[in-house]
Design a protein around this nucleic acid. Sequence first.
DNA 1: GTCGCAAATAATGTCGGCATTAATTCCTAA
DNA 2: TTAGGAATTAATGCCGACATTATTTGCGAC
Lengths: 242, 242
Amino acid sequence: MSALIPNIEVGVNGIYASLMDRTAKPKETRAEIAYASLKTAILSNELPAGYQAMEPELALSYGVSRTTIREALIRLEADGLVEMVPRRGARVVPISAEDMREIYQLLVSLESDAAYDLAKRGLTPGEFKRLEQTITEMAGALDRESMADWAKADDDFHRGILDIHGNQRLGRIVGGLSDQAHRARLVTRRFRPLPSRSVDDHRAILAAIDSKKAEDARRLYSEHRQRGAAEIMDIIEKLPQV
Amino acid sequence: MSALIPNIEVGVNGIYASLMDRTAKPKETRAEIAYASLKTAILSNELPAGYQAMEPELALSYGVSRTTIREALIRLEADGLVEMVPRRGARVVPISAEDMREIYQLLVSLESDAAYDLAKRGLTPGEFKRLEQTITEMAGALDRESMADWAKADDDFHRGILDIHGNQRLGRIVGGLSDQAHRARLVTRRFRPLPSRSVDDHRAILAAIDSKKAEDARRLYSEHRQRGAAEIMDIIEKLPQV
DNA sequence: GTCGCAAATAATGTCGGCATTAATTCCTAA
DNA sequence: TTAGGAATTAATGCCGACATTATTTGCGAC
């Protein structure tokens, strides 16, 4: 157990925790730890987009061998978070405006279809309550003017829809896409006003799902997400790079 | 011993032949070759679902070291094609009926939304022609009663939609999902009748897209895909395992 | 015979090292 | 001075090896 590995148990905090592989079993292998550690560092912008490092350097700073770091990097590369270029080191992939457009397009598509499916199936009282709870929390966050809490509640709502939907692959894919967008969102968050409208949006979506108006649910969800996406894209395009 | 495992130097399409050929492009790394080779073996059911092998065995039969094989396996695992269980070896993941349901649900969602988007945007004459061409080929395949050719044409059509759509991440995700379903499709193909209806389906979809009837395009595409999915699911559920 | 425990086996996770070779620095000649 | 090439540096891809440990085998007691 190398003390060199930073923030292992601390690394997975709140919001990121829900973004990380939720079904992963705690296989405490060094490569696994390096992977998780590196991943949270990237998602939190601790290692910003464009950051580049050679394998030996990473191995040294994480206190493991190159083989081990390499294993972690390969997985990160498969996640689309890192890019390995021979003799130029591993690089945290930058996300262009075009990338964000792609990602949001997919998120809108996948999530609003999920809402559509859910509406067709309907909600159990427990499921309804769970979603409603996130809306309540979001309202509270707005009152407190806490952007972080708002983001958490927002995430919980969208995450809840996917969980209830039940398609695990859907969850994993959306999770991966969200991860890729996460860094950019972190940056834009500071420039965005508190989205006061989101509470009403979520309420409307929940109502549509609960009353089994599938088409409405899809449309509302899609519009809601697209508004958010547009807002972020606006900022992204003005920013130098993420 | 494993005569089961295809020789790496013989690779299906000549690309892999460069392993021993030092004068050729040294771009392909051994790990990549092993990855590609393993992957095609899995997708072609040469290595069937449930096939299990230890790392040393794989390393030996591919003529590389364990480290190298390991790299390939990690990527395969990220692709969702292989599962690594300590002390029980790497296993080609079986696809349950439930898995197929998940996969097809996502494919239906993603592809019909792509059709929707395309319809909103409209097609250039060249794009229209490209898609039309695949339909012509499919009709020919049906005449010849060639299931293989039909599958090819079918794939070209669906692939064409995605290509024209342009969202590269969408293409990669759908590709990955298709890969996962591929083996099952290979198996079911023998049990399915030639889907004569597909030509009309594709024509209708293409017409809807071309005339910019977005909602129609989505609905038609969705129904078309769902029919196909249902057919395959029917067979899958009766089959022992894939 | 079989139950339990000890010994043997072997796969994994991880390491350090080697050859290769891309990138960089340093010369040297014009 | 600068172009061009030689020498140097060091990162990569790959390998074999080691300790650890799960699994299997073997063996003695009941």
